[in-house]
Amino acid sequence: MKCRKYLSMIKAGIMEDMQFRGAIIMTFFGNLLYLLLAFFLWKAIFESSDSPVINGMTFSDTIIYLVFAAALFNFMEMWTVWNMGRDIQDGKIVVDLLMPCGYRRLRLFRGLGEVIVNFFTTLLPTAIIVYFISGKAIHLGLNILWFLISVFFSFFINYYIEFIVGTIIMYTESIWGIDIMKEVVVGVLSGAMIPLAFFPEGFKQIALALPFHAIIDSPMTLLLHPEYGLTDVVNILAMQVLWFVVMGILSDVFFKFSLRRITVNGG
């Protein structure tokens, strides 16, 4: 019974998304365009270097890393910050809080349908195209499994971060301003803009100490390094699990705390 409720929420999300036929095709072509642009930009960058391997990354590694980063963000996009902002500003959140299943879970299941569509329309085709364009540079082995497990945690860490940022909107009116800050901070510190390998040592250490790298850098490292032994893999995944737990608790506590504060203040 409970399960069916969530299933129908997901299904509604999928159908809603499919209505927008132009958008699905557009997203796919958008990713292709990004792939194309990143390809030329980084080709130019690598051609300007004497060595084909820079900071342990080859040209095809870099392209795979960046294009996957963009596709992963597309795939995970549930507009959590925007939707929460809207719910909070027009007061609709009060209705949702009366639901028996918790606001964080509610938002998650409402967005999951879109995520599923995104998987088939953007992530999967992009992955296949990148695989062939890069001359099959992606090793097909256990690393794919590690990658998928890692993406599972990435998804939740990203969702929890978005949920925290969405909660901040209870304190300010500025959805746009908050969202753009999140976008740029997550973008650069996850490695999605420039792979973390290219960061100078100090910057890299800072990025690795923060949760954002677990969204992009962790799964991409697992995908691009099939030679990693079990200890390396476990190390990376354990770090993700840690952030998964920490961000999960943090987002929950922060939301409940903020809610209480706001209701007390009668905001």
Binding site: F20, R21, A23
Partner: peptide
């Protein structure tokens, strides 16, 4: 011309 055109803007 199309529904949910946000992707065009972000593109």
């Amino acid at each position: 011309f199309i529904m949910n055109s946000f992707f065009v803007l972000s593109l």
